Amino acid sequence: MCDKTAKIGQIAPDLLAWYDVHARDLPWRISPSDGASGVVPDPYRVWMSEIMLQQTTVAAVRAYFHRFTTLWPTVADLAGAEDGAVMGEWAGLGYYARARNLLKCARVVAFEHDGRFPDDHDALLKLPGIGPYTAAAISAIAFGRPEVVMDGNVERVMARLFDIHTPLPAAKPELKDHAASMTPQHRPGDYAQAVMDLGATICSPKSPACGICPLRSPCKARAMGTASELPKKTPKKPKPIRRGIVYLARRADGALLLERRPDKGLLGGMLGWPGSDWTDAPDPAPPFDADWQTLSGEVRHTFTHFHLILTVETAPLPETLTPDSGQILPRDAFRPSDLPTVMRKAYDLWQPESL
């Protein structure tokens, strides 16, 4: 028996047997028992969950997934949705380019693929917003193809299983090779989810529960006593700090001045407050002339590549103002939940009593 076959024979059955008993109950997942009864995953729900889970926790995604699949139960429903409605429902989940690509991808699938997701990795890669990981996950989970699905949980399991001390991200190719060597032809979707579940529940970043791990016997890091220090990571550079100003204006009847941010860039396509650029020294850019008052306190928010500190300024919104840009939203049409988190923080700091 070759080394690759030996690894598959040793690891995959043990892990699948563990998964059959301990699989997490997730709203987008077909349980092992349902799968054994012939229930097949819905590619739409698999795709939706994988897009939402990018750089986001399962706990944060659950409510969004339920809401999206209730409002738009099929890819055709989502394709026909208004952009603003989808962006509003996505608000708070972060990484807003995902929401824009969600709509683009839904429309391509609905109008160019007759509402059916392609069933192979290469074809999936051609869809908007789908990269190598997402294509592999959909291929494996939705269509039963033996693709190598690599997320942070899988990387951690592989680093410990083979006692790999090369720091991430340099270790990624080596970790993927190991993962590929163990990916089975039988139940590859369940296997991919089993490795991710193992990393999320037992082979956790801190204090891994090695004593109850189904892979404790072949795990080299457990034998060497190095599991808790793996995977190693290259230290990240400190994030720079940027500053900005946002302007919150309210009319006597409660209407508010907002703007839809450009599709490209941070918070693209999202509803927010007019404001300055975000730089080391932002230039004031009030939307109209007024006696703007600076609120005490400030808004702090962290993006992937920098920390942001916002000053909040307020003024009454003139009754007859026609803004050069943005929109005046009536009080009953405004939902704070439609705002991205950083803009919601500015609103919460303001907290106008009459709204």
Rank of each mutant, 00 (worst) to 15 (best):
R45F: 12
Q193Y: 12
S204T: 15
A227F: 11
R116V: 01
L16M: 05
A223M: 13
E147R: 05
D151K: 07
K237A: 15
L329N: 00
L248E: 00
M52V: 05
S37Q: 15
K206N: 15
L125E: 06
T341W: 07
P336G: 06
F68I: 08
S325A: 13
H307T: 02
S49P: 04
G268F: 11
G115C: 01
G272I: 06
F306S: 11
R62Q: 13
G35K: 10
D151R: 08
R242I: 00
P323W: 10
W18H: 05
L267C: 12
W18K: 06
R335T: 00
D348S: 08
E112R: 00
T320S: 14
I328A: 08
P287G: 03
T226G: 10
F68V: 02
R62T: 14
F288H: 00
A76G: 02
K4E: 15
A170W: 14
G268R: 08
G265K: 07
L53I: 03
V195P: 07
T314K: 01
D25I: 12
D77S: 02
I11N: 04
C210G: 05
Y64T: 09
P208T: 04
A249T: 01
T341S: 14
T279P: 07
F303D: 02
G199I: 09
G84H: 15
D332C: 11
L26I: 04
Q351Y: 12
G80L: 04
Q185V: 10
I241S: 13
H165A: 05
D151M: 08
A63P: 06
P336A: 06
M52Y: 10
R243T: 09
M224K: 00
K7D: 14
P132A: 14
I202A: 00
L125S: 04
W350R: 03
R156A: 09
I328F: 11
R251M: 01
P240T: 00
G199W: 10
G268M: 09
A346G: 07
E313A: 09
R222A: 13
T166K: 15
K237L: 13
P169F: 11
A285W: 09
L355A: 15
G92N: 12
F334R: 03
L308T: 05
I51V: 15
E112N: 03
E259P: 07
D291L: 13
H307I: 05
D77I: 00
T294H: 07
F288K: 01
V21C: 12
T183V: 11
T314C: 04
D324M: 08
D289I: 12
I130S: 09
L230W: 12
R222S: 12
V108A: 02
S33Y: 15
T226E: 09
R335F: 08
F303Q: 06
L161M: 10
G268Y: 10
P208Q: 04
H301A: 06
E147K: 05
A59K: 14
H22I: 02
F162C: 10
D120P: 02
H121W: 15
A36W: 14
A170N: 14
N153M: 03
G254C: 04
T70Q: 14
K345P: 05
G297R: 08
V75R: 01
K104V: 03
E174Q: 14
E155S: 07
E147P: 02
E298Y: 12
R107A: 00
L215V: 11
I202N: 00
R160M: 03
D253T: 07
Y96I: 14
W18Q: 05
C2G: 15
G94V: 07
E82A: 13
H186A: 15
L93S: 10
P188W: 07
R24T: 11
